[in-house]
Amino acid sequence: MHVGLGEEERALIAELSGQLVALLEGRDESDPAVSRLLPPGYADDDEANAEFRRLTVDDLTAGKIRNAEMVRESLASADPKAPLTPEAEQAWLRSLTDLRLTLASRLGLTDGGFAPGATDDRAMLENVYEWLGFVQESLVRAVDR
């Protein structure tokens, strides 16, 4: 399996993946997108959650950064038709999810749809979000043979 994307599409995912890495490295806990990427392990037990987080958050963050970087590496590879390794497939699946979670948070997505107040910039991001969902769906189908 390879990633059948055009040059501009590859550049867009590379750019977004770079932003995701920066977001994860900054780990600003007050940012709702960061809270969704690194969510609580207990819904209603602050003490247990603090301990869970202390034990897991560094590795979880590092794993997500590694996935995003692996996506960037495969996008930068000289041969765009080069097949993804099983490890790279997993990195793509997970990192596309992280990108979509981040965009959804920025766009205020709920079960009822995107938050109102669309501007041109927001409309473009909403399109990017929907498109990443299409890419993700294709990838799940390809991996899930």
Binding site: P39, A43, A48, R94, R100
Partner: peptide
Amino acid sequence: VDALHGYGLWATVS
């Protein structure tokens, strides 16, 4: 739960 967070799912222990 930690593994599911790695996949981007929203999971908790109860």
